[in-house]
Amino acid sequence: MFVETEEFAKRLEAMDESEREAAYEAVVRWFAENSSKITHHMRLAPAHTATTVRLGGGEPVVTDGPFVEGKEVVSGYAEVEVADLDEALKLARSWPACPIVEIRPAA
């Protein structure tokens, strides 16, 4: 899971056209280089587009915004097929974009 921070978002915003293009290219290259291990990936629209539904307490409650308001937001994910955690860690270490990557096994 890719996690963006406020700082990272600001840095991205401050970039000029060519810098941003280079950043995107690095991501595209990462996906291309690791394509044999990546089974599926998705980038999510920014957190301000989120709507949250809370169930289980009578009527479902619909609210504007992500389920938790924080400085760190899940911005996408990639599903990878690897032998073990060390291999996943190696992939995560080479990720060129947002500063946090959470690794979880698929249940």
Partner: peptide
């Protein structure tokens, strides 16, 4: 078991 922590000596670069 669940996170797949391997049972081996790490590779040279790790």
């Amino acid at each position: 078991a669940e996170a797949g922590i391997p049972y081996r000596i790490p590779a040279a670069e790790e």
